[in-house]
């Protein structure tokens, strides 16, 4: 004859066992997911690095300079282009004197 406490203990053991199995199973599953996520992160990081390197290659100063000069027709900034407004009146005279020299 099975007594009430014994059956209770039996069910507790059964429940604990099943829970333990499920927990272990879900941990394994999560570990696999984690590995996959880590691999994805690594792959994404690698791709980002490649893209950054490509961007850096495209933004090379010599390339930008070539585009600015040949395609956009830009020219280097001369001192006369950025005079201080207060100095503007005297600047023209001084620069023209300098050029005459």
């Amino acid at each position: 004859m099975i007594r009430y406490p014994s059956s209770l203990i039996f069910f507790v053991i059964l429940f604990t066992g099943i829970s333990l199995y499920q927990i272990k199973h879900s941990i394994t599953k999560k570990e696999i997911e984690l590995t996959q996520i880590k691999n994805n992160i690594k792959s994404a990081q690698s791709n980002i690095n490649i893209l950054k390197a490509e961007l850096s290659y495209l933004k090379r100063p010599d390339r930008i300079e070539k585009i600015a000069l040949e395609k956009l027709g830009l020219r280097e900034i001369l001192p006369t282009d950025i005079w201080n407004i207060n100095d503007l009146v005297n600047a023209t005279n001084i620069l023209s004197n300098g050029e005459n020299k």
Binding site: I41, S46, N49, I50, K52, S56
Partner: peptide, 28 residues
Amino acid sequence: EIENEPNLKSLRGNIYDRNNKILATTIS
């Protein structure tokens, strides 16, 4: 590993110029 950030980044660090332009990087 996921808690510890540097372990996640296994590639050699980048070298940047003063305006954060890449001067050296590692790719696979």
